[in-house]
């Protein structure tokens, strides 16, 4: 902005102060963070080398291992399916009480928001830690963790959809003499069904990805094999498993994108 004609600048003084100020603060925090972490540059410098070395040991992938991975991969998808369905069942009432236009009162609204916040703030793996204590190691703990983690996401998006409901459409059905149940299936469900299906399928796709790591805490899925291979430094098995995970994730992402495009 230098060399501009007199009195011309892109932003006024306050706006510029805000912009410059936020950049300076961000920069200071980054520098401060670096200092705090006290990481030697020597390690940072050798990091690419170390990673490259590891990648070298991963090649070529041990494809022969993959038949053993079919079962655990199926289990990963199963965890995502059941976890998502469980989450949808539990999230629907939570969405209902966390939408401003349907929540019965202030207390239920606050409760809805609290459930959404706690569910979303705690990572799947942490939920899995807790549920392994409850249900013991295995896929059940992973499924419940997946479900609990998804409630917040689903309830938040579904609640926003409920807040968008056009009550004119409901009124039109009510005027014909329809009962509350018919109002629900005829006036309300058609308005939120596409969103419900779309959001659920999207979450299932996220859950497939999340379920690949549950094995780290013993909560089932392909992660069990993966982390065993890592522990025994079987790097070529690790890379084969990573490729398999990549394929499953991409396929489920494709299914999810296709389904969401079809539902409207």
């Amino acid at each position: 902005m230098t060399g501009a004609p007199p009195d011309w600048s892109r932003f006024d003084a306050r706006e510029r102060l805000f912009r410059v100020g936020s950049v300076v603060i961000a920069a200071a925090v980054v520098v401060g963070s670096w200092e705090w972490l006290d990481m030697s540059l020597r390690y940072v410098g050798s990091a690419p080398l170390q990673v490259g070395d590891l990648l070298g040991r991963m090649y070529p992938p041990d494809w022969a291992y993959l038949p053993n991975a079919v079962g655990p991969l199926a289990e990963t998808i199963q965890i995502a399916v059941v976890g998502t369905i469980g989450a949808v069942l539990m999230a629907t009432p939570v969405a209902y009480i966390s939408a401003e236009n349907t929540t019965p009162n202030k207390a239920t609204y606050a409760l809805g928001k609290l459930i959404v916040t706690v569910s979303r703030s705690v990572h799947t793996i942490v939920w899995a830690l807790l549920f392994v204590v409850m249900f013991g190691p295995g896929a059940l703990a992973g499924t419940v963790a997946t479900a609990v983690r998804s409630i917040g996401f689903l309830a938040k998006l579904l609640g926003e959809e409920i807040e968008e409901i056009d009550f004119g459409q409901v009124e039109g059905v009510r005027a014909t003499g329809a009962s509350p149940f018919k109002l629900l299936v005829y006036g309300i469900v058609p308005q939120i069904k596409p969103a419900l299906v779309g959001i659920s399928v999207y979450r299932w796709d996220i859950n497939v990805r999340a379920a690949t790591i549950l094995g780290f805490v013993g909560a089932g899925g392909i992660g069990v094999q993966l982390f065993q291979a890592i522990d025994s430094f079987a790097w070529r098995t690790v890379s084969a498993l990573l490729v398999a995970i990549l394929a499953v994730v991409l396929v489920s992402e494709g299914i999810s994108a296709y389904a969401r495009k079809k539902v409207r």
């Binding site: 390690y43 940072v44 990549l246 994730v249």
Partner: peptide
């Protein structure tokens, strides 16, 4: 690739390559 592999898997591999710690 970056989107498909969960962060924790990357973190484990990183811990093995680079050692424990924030790096």
């Amino acid at each position: 690739v970056s989107r498909a592999i969960d962060g924790l898997i990357v973190a484990i591999v990183a811990v093995i390559a680079l050692g424990f710690g924030p790096l």
